[in-house]
Design a protein around this nucleic acid. Sequence first.
DNA 1: TCGTTTGTTGCATAGGCTGCAACAGGTGTG
DNA 2: CACACCTGTTGCAGCCTATGCAACAAACGA
Lengths: 247, 247
Amino acid sequence: MSQSIQRAAEILELVSLRPRTQSEVAEHLGVHRSTALRMLQTLTEAGLTRRHADGHYGVGYRLAGLASVAAEQFDLRNISRPHLASLGRECLHTVHLAVLDGSAIVYADKIEQPGMVRLYSQVGQPVVLHTAGVAKAILAFQPAAVVDRMLATHAFTRYTETTLTSRAAYDAELDRVRSRGWSVDDAEYEDYVNCVAMPIRDARGNVLAAVSVTALKARADLAALEQLLPRLDEVVSDVSRAIGWRP
Amino acid sequence: MSQSIQRAAEILELVSLRPRTQSEVAEHLGVHRSTALRMLQTLTEAGLTRRHADGHYGVGYRLAGLASVAAEQFDLRNISRPHLASLGRECLHTVHLAVLDGSAIVYADKIEQPGMVRLYSQVGQPVVLHTAGVAKAILAFQPAAVVDRMLATHAFTRYTETTLTSRAAYDAELDRVRSRGWSVDDAEYEDYVNCVAMPIRDARGNVLAAVSVTALKARADLAALEQLLPRLDEVVSDVSRAIGWRP
DNA sequence: TCGTTTGTTGCATAGGCTGCAACAGGTGTG
DNA sequence: CACACCTGTTGCAGCCTATGCAACAAACGA
């Protein structure tokens, strides 16, 4: 809508990766050098960028200050709620939000549908790491060290026929999840419940949460749930963008 | 220089104080409502602002993303952070890091203590040159030309009874700071807040930053803060050494 | 020393921003 | 239920302002 502001935002994105000279910024934006300089000067006056001694422009201190204000207000649950709710209304299944919280993954929100069988999950409770779709969607995108730490003392208890009961099998599944971008719980915890899940990325691109659509197999089996993946992808993309993620 | 970018920055500052409606923003900027909305939409697309469910606009989470991507650009802050944090933990007061940034001195970091009264200062904001302890700690060790340039257009506004309201009085204070190596803010800006500060030196021995310990007078008066000087000296020495300074 | 890049300035142009008005949709109030 | 109020959207005319350009001084590094 507003070209100059768009360009300003682009400059911030550019110099946040690494400080740039006025010429580099000009070239990146496709504008004249003097134009880029004028914009950089304005941004610098505002403290959003700052000029380094070597003539490169980087991110300014004021931006860090504003960022901390934003960080204080961070509230994933409230941000994602409307997106999850509309997803729930559309597909009429239960929608979960789970977040990585220290050494556990816990349900942070749950959208239920009226007149449905209640699922066992409860907000605030830790998920079962080796069966829950959300756990796989989150762990698939964590550094190996984090996965190791979380699974170090984890027992791969068998709950159903499809439960993954070894770390090796689980790791293989995480590989699959990582490459295709979504995960399932194929009746691995209760043999009549299955789900699909996708990860949410934060402002740094890290995966710290996931959304799942869960249903009784009798109501919607895996094949049916997979039909919802495009819509689920939309939802997690929207939420990721809303919390500052950019592709 | 660039009107739109200036306005964008002003919007960020405005909504960082508290979320505003498009009408409030328009009024604040003195532009038509549709203009303000167009700017807000652009900022929101970029993630720099964010629309709350009630139609108010606040700071966006992309700011946090940019700041964290750019974290490595703030070398001094990164180096000093652990030292400041442990100092803060020990004395349970607010610790500030301020740097000389072009023609202003701005807060570069702020270590707050849980459950404490919030101080007015914000990262990225310019400090008040004639009252802030960090300003005195930095300016006392600048060449006269730099001090003159920075104070040339500075108004020595009186905020409290102890505010230094003349260049002469300020220069005398800088002399004192220079000889003893530390500075104070004796309730010169807000009559219930005081602090002590010491300079950080770089590899060339130049002072480009300072650290302060700030507290409500009721919690710790100047005499109490001066007890912390040996520890503060340790901190600024450690940080100075870490960036290459040698005594 | 020279070549390169930065920062500055004045100016003409054109492009984009601005204000305006009208309308749809949503919210809350009486 | 009507009403008032605010938000969000759109098309458009006119003017502002951002832009490109060129020339120059200054800083910088090779």
